[in-house]
Amino acid sequence: MADPAVDDVLIVASLLFVAAAATAAVLNRDPARQAVVLSLLGLGLAVLFTVLQAPDVGLSQLGVGSALTPLMILLTVRKVRRQRERRDGERHGGKRRG
């Protein structure tokens, strides 16, 4: 079976990757850019689960973290941005009329 030393290296590397990705996700302030880092955090968690011999958890984390969460965040950001633009447009239009 697996060599313990290499196994430890894998576990430590994926743990450090998860910690770094989570920190980077916090330090980025723009939600759209945050989504990219967040997807990498999901991938890192999937590797961590796999290295800890829980590939079933990793599989679901892969599906949720790498594609679904960023998609929802980006769609939300887009919708909020459009609503704000429309509201601003209405306000300017009203001023011009009045």
């Binding site: 759209a32 850019r33 997807s39 999937a46 599989l59 892969l62 599906g63 790498s66 594609a67 980006l74």
Partner: peptide, 17 residues
């Protein structure tokens, strides 16, 4: 799963970001 979802995620980012 990742070989399907990874490029899909990148396409989402390319389209929306």
């Amino acid at each position: 799963v990742l070989s399907v979802l990874g490029p899909a995620g990148t396409l989402v980012f390319a389209r929306l970001l």
